[in-house]
Design a protein around this nucleic acid. Sequence first.
DNA 1: ATCCTTGGTTCGTTCACTGAACTCAGGCGG
DNA 2: CCGCCTGAGTTCAGTGAACGAACCAAGGAT
Lengths: 172, 172
Amino acid sequence: MALGRDYPGQDCALARALEVIGERWTMLVLRDAFYGVRRFSDFHDHLAAPRAVLTERLATLVDAGVLARRRYQQSPPRDEYVLTARGRELWPTVYTLVHWGERHLSEGGARRTFHHAGCGHRLDALGCCPRCAASVPAADVEIRPGPGLSVVATDPVSLALRTPHRLLEPLR
Amino acid sequence: MALGRDYPGQDCALARALEVIGERWTMLVLRDAFYGVRRFSDFHDHLAAPRAVLTERLATLVDAGVLARRRYQQSPPRDEYVLTARGRELWPTVYTLVHWGERHLSEGGARRTFHHAGCGHRLDALGCCPRCAASVPAADVEIRPGPGLSVVATDPVSLALRTPHRLLEPLR
DNA sequence: ATCCTTGGTTCGTTCACTGAACTCAGGCGG
DNA sequence: CCGCCTGAGTTCAGTGAACGAACCAAGGAT
């Protein structure tokens, strides 16, 4: 009990949330899940996190009801990890943090831009469409490569994200 | 949790942001800063994080321009840590994560509720006021104790947060 | 029969977090 | 002047988590 991934004694919803999504790599796993990544090997190729850590994080997220593990083919048996409704509600958190990073820590312009898939307008700081004056759920967001995106990554996920893509749609 | 510092190879604003605020305890430090905590000993008493970790996290946040270290008295020399404009822009991230935790991980009702200080209405999922139909900056948010808040904590910060309080205002 | 792919598990090394003790400087009470 | 208190750290040994490379297994494909 001495060490741990939890925050005992913090009577706070933020601490509870961080026990689920605050561990190293977890937010990047969620980001990839929103981008359409669903398979273990794609998460691994794109993140370059140790496999054991990835296994553990995916299990934690499934236990918390953020991801669901689904069999998508029987032979050979293969599972994929998809966001649940509860997981999709984390989109504002992921988006606002990406937006903050783009604003304050990105030299050379945005790496990716996010648009309302209906009208094409770029989302504001909270993930709302300034034209439609409404918040945009993840399923209606289109992600596009931005001017600051480097071109060195060669893994399939990075390549797929070089073209505009709707969130939550599987990459392949 | 033992977070490493950085995410090399991730050409992504989220990874850059997590290198600043993704380490263990850092988000809770920011939450406390929004709640009005400014002094090292108050952070320490409220969080119960090891002093060495707290020292390092505060230094990282100051280096990143999220917090500013300010001398508030000369004799004896004492500094306080206050959110900068850049740090205050993290409010939507902190709020949406607290909101998600309250919705999905809090038994027995919300621990704290957040209101538009102008009109008293409770904020929605993105931190906007449903009455005024506008996003509410941290300085205009009032935090109130909720029905799920336990009463066991006895540190000065927890006690001060038993009464409604405007964000960013110093606790004492 | 052998190789390849997917999705892991195992394991030794390295590194970050923990808690307790220690430091230091400036008041303060007697 | 002496000892004690407070705020704000620093130091350090012990431990648990992350790392990465190797290994494993089931089911095709050649």
